[in-house]
């Protein structure tokens, strides 16, 4: 059942130009950054050789690409998640799902899985950039993998939050604005809260992502992402259940 709903989400996504525009735009931006860094690396290479412990190609080229990718995903996710639930309500298709022999959990997980498949495509396409460099030399595979894993967890967190916000309203635009606002807040929370103790900065999704970006898979960050994802999925399930109970 989860797969059926996920497949439908993917289909609806790809029959609209939105998905294709996003794939193209994201790839264009990231390839641009990638080529820019590659140029810089080639230029600096001779000077880097003189340093005792020089940063490798992966650190100079790939790490910035993934850092930009996280910001790009932050901007793009609200526009992709906005219609997940809001549109079902707006188009009055929710009764179809609710009258079908499917649990609310399956509906929510199906929609989450559907969009995650789309994000896997994005992350795969981003991954092609560092792998193209394998043609010319050796890369730090561990660093690439930790970045990929971080980006995956980050995207899943964005999607679960977006899914929840989308379930709160019947207007996709409001869902998009709300999600973007919350994601921005979670981004800057570690910048503005420097002197508010050390609890608040831990809520910043991008701060946790920085760990992965630097090549460190911190179990605290992994658990934080997991809890974040599960919390918002559960909230969405409760919200759908509530619509049945409270009308």
């Amino acid at each position: 059942m989860i797969l059926t709903i996920a497949a439908k989400e993917i289909k609806v996504l790809f029959v609209s130009p939105l998905a294709w525009v996003f794939l193209a735009a994201i790839q264009l931006i990231l390839t641009w950054v990638f080529l820019g860094r590659l140029d810089a690396f080639i230029e600096l290479q001779s000077q880097l050789m003189l340093i005792a412990n020089p940063p490798g190609a992966t650190e100079v080229i790939i790490v910035p690409v993934y850092a930009v990718a996280s910001i790009v995903l932050l901007m793009a996710t609200p526009l992709l998640t906005m219609r997940l639930m809001a549109e079902e309500w707006r188009n009055h298709t929710m009764p179809l799902l609710m009258a079908a022999p499917v649990t609310v959990t399956a509906i929510v997980l199906g929609k989450f899985a559907g969009l995650m498949i789309f994000f896997l495509i994005i992350i795969f396409l981003v991954g092609l950039l560092p792998f193209s460099l394998f043609l010319g030399g050796t890369m730090d595979l561990g660093l690439i993998l930790s970045n990929t894993m971080g980006l995956l967890l980050l995207a899943a967190s964005f999607v679960s939050l977006g899914l929840y916000v989308s379930s709160l309203t019947t207007h996709p635009a409001i869902a998009a604005a709300g999600t973007l606002g919350l994601l921005m807040m979670l981004w800057i929370i570690d910048i503005v809260s420097t002197d508010l103790g050390n609890l608040l900065p831990n809520l910043s999704l991008l701060k946790h992502y920085e760990q992965f970006n630097r090549g460190m898979i911190d179990s605290f960050s992994v658990i934080f992402f997991m809890l974040f994802i599960i919390s918002f999925l559960v909230l969405t399930i409760r919200r759908l259940d509530g619509s049945r109970l409270h009308g």
Binding site: M1, K8, K11, V12, H92, M94, L96, A100
Partner: peptide
């Protein structure tokens, strides 16, 4: 339902196939 629950961006076949799987 009172308002037909249709996904307007799908074809009739795609839609009915989805509903059949759902049921």
């Amino acid at each position: 339902p009172e308002i037909p629950p249709l996904y307007k961006e799908l074809t009739v076949d795609e839609y009915l196939r989805f509903v059949a799987k759902l049921h």
